[in-house]
Design a protein around this nucleic acid. Sequence first.
DNA 1: AAGCGTACCAGACAAATGTCTGTCACGTCA
DNA 2: TGACGTGACAGACATTTGTCTGGTACGCTT
Lengths: 211, 211
Amino acid sequence: MGPTPPGQTKERVFRFVQQRIVAGMPPTVREVQRAMGFSAVQTAMQHLETLVAEGRLVKTSGKARGYSLPGVGPTVLVPLLGRVQAGDFTTAIQQHEGTLPIQVRSEDREYFALRVQGESMEGVGIMPGDIVVVQRQATANSGDIVVALVDDEATIKRLRLRHGRVELHPENQQFAILRPDPQSVTILGKVIEVRRFLDATPPWLADLSAD
Amino acid sequence: MGPTPPGQTKERVFRFVQQRIVAGMPPTVREVQRAMGFSAVQTAMQHLETLVAEGRLVKTSGKARGYSLPGVGPTVLVPLLGRVQAGDFTTAIQQHEGTLPIQVRSEDREYFALRVQGESMEGVGIMPGDIVVVQRQATANSGDIVVALVDDEATIKRLRLRHGRVELHPENQQFAILRPDPQSVTILGKVIEVRRFLDATPPWLADLSAD
DNA sequence: AAGCGTACCAGACAAATGTCTGTCACGTCA
DNA sequence: TGACGTGACAGACATTTGTCTGGTACGCTT
């Protein structure tokens, strides 16, 4: 029962704890003990304390399974919306057709996801069937790719602001630039991520909420 | 302290627990109690039991924070590899330049991620800078998009099998079909997901492991 | 009115879990 | 050789956490 070389056990502990945290169920100290084959709880405790002192783990004292990884943003369930129509955004959220776990920077913001249906953004690799993750905001910068409501339909385009007027540019020459009347355009949010599943669609995109 | 209408509190409990589970730290029963404003632990317990009976939560009895969501695959940390060269795959795994939390179907499989560097797959919306998630496997079906080692370089192409011989097709007319000698081609895996971050690159793509 | 189902409360107990003190073993360095 | 740092063990205690029994309140149905 001699010690292993310095640093080796600590790394094994870190990898085990990290994987468990990422998998969604941080381990108890005794689970670390058992997984590492230690005889004493204190051995696991000690390595965990070292990792905390090094800043590689964060601990909530006195709480079961209280270790977490620093700098990893929270995961939230983002609703995948079906149809989005004018004045009906809240209903679209409630009637989402699935959910997408997304690591975000801030839980203070609202997000939603849409499935891309047209070919107007293919020039930048946003293809039909892709899923765009959208941060909810009513304004955006010129050049951002946004989801906007025009008349009665949601559309994904690149925003251009010309003298304060909204232009919605496609990224495909076969589509025209939209210059909607200001009264008939609403920006719903900014596209922050694009995802494409080449294997089968994951099961968690099915609705996990009560209907 | 009259009861709320049937079903309302249960839904609030489910949403709270679901969000906490997705965020990576399932709640204790007393945390549910406090979050809902109940005076008694047993109230929280009862709603949780009902949700378990309905199959919407799964419980590990006797363990702290033992509730989980059914049908949600595990999350694993997928290494984002830099250079991949022949005969050096294990080293590339160890020297990954970041990690990506990915929901997968099975922890029994191995995954890695690569940053796309060429334009040969732009026809199907796989753009330079995208990140592809790859399921590790040595064979694939004709038509799959794969990561293959050719001579000494990893490349992302669509696999075509002609009379048992490997062809690697680009999805961009400006690139040529590769018909490598069988001795000089190795399939590393199948691309299962494409991700693009339009906001800044998330911090967790930085290396969380020890160097 | 009685029964049932759901939403709540109060209190207590058992086990899991966090935490601490004390100790030994080994390798390295001055 | 002694000191130090890291890796280990043993044991005990305090607190958190899961779980249970017993009870009330309300609305609906027969």
